[in-house]
Design a protein around this nucleic acid. Structure first.
Lengths: 161, 161
DNA sequence: TATTGTTATACTCTATAACTATA
DNA sequence: TATAGTTATAGAGTATAACAATA
């Protein structure tokens, strides 16, 4: 074991915060590569997930959740609508709002997306045993809760490609 | 304990890969906020770190390490040079290359940067006990090694602000 | 001829703000 | 008057490729 080497520059690999940023960028890039095979960007995948979890929201609400301005949300949703994955419905009570929901085709793609996500998870965590994998998830969730991060949504969805 | 709630939507919080991406983006943003007080971007901080660790490299080599094209590296280094933090020296053997190194002022700023990084680490990991903190670092390093990530450098440095 | 550093330029991404329709 | 959705536009960020100096 090269313990001397490891202690040579204590900060050279960074602490947990640096490793999180480094691994986070790496995991996000690998995920982007994978969902590109479904002709989706990570942001589009995030919206599909969000619509499955919370259908019927207005575009403005969804834009807020994803951390993008409403003006950017419009062409973003356009792309998915043109592909028949989501649909806009006028809300009967207030005809200003367009409530968004998944189409059947969108739900089918979401199922394939979940398969991709499982493969991605296995790929990223292949260095760990099943026990360690669960241990890591536990630690990360504790941090995410304490840092008040919204479950299931992250800022990386702001970039569209 | 709301175990029912937790199992309601198994994928709603994401696995380790999602949490890594989410927390990574969060940690990177918090770090950006902190180093902004030193009037540095994360990419500039990364270059200072890199020059301390490996001085004397050519701009092209450094650009490769940071994952940016040489044409972008030029104005990037210009900013730090104008502030007197780094210096360009013609390499005697090959007058085409500009070897970069930290100035004394640059080394002083790097020291302050390390203080900021320590505070950042404590902030991000305050949910964990010291033992758990070390446990997390161990797990993350195992993943980083297996995924062949270069210690101390990450792709997020590509964006300059 | 090849390579380093640099500059020029075209292209993409992004946010702000103006506009419309409904309320 | 205020709000949802949309469109227009200007600004920043980015990469590709052309250029000058040195090898």
């Amino acid at each position: 074991m090269s313990t001397e080497r490891e202690n040579e520059h204590p900060a050279s690999r960074g602490g947990a915060a640096f490793l999180l940023a480094q691994l986070g960028a790496h995991a996000a890039q690998r995920f982007a590569d994978r969902v590109a095979e479904l002709e989706l960007t990570p942001a589009q995948a995030g919206l599909l997930r969000l619509l499955a979890q919370a259908p019927g929201h207005s575009q403005r609400e969804l834009a807020d959740m994803l951390g993008m301005p409403p003006s950017r949300f419009v062409p973003f949703a356009d792309g998915l609508q043109e592909r028949g994955l989501i649909e806009r419905r006028r809300k009967p009570g207030d005809r200003r709002v367009h409530a968004l929901r998944l189409t059947d085709e969108g739900m089918e793609l979401l199922a394939r997306l979940r398969t991709v996500a499982r493969a991605h998870e296995e790929d990223v965590c292949q260095a760990l045993s099943p026990d360690e994998h669960q241990q890591l998830i536990g630690l990360l969730r504790r941090i995410a809760d304490q840092q008040r991060l919204t479950p299931g949504v992250h800022v990386g969805y702001r970039r569209l490609r």
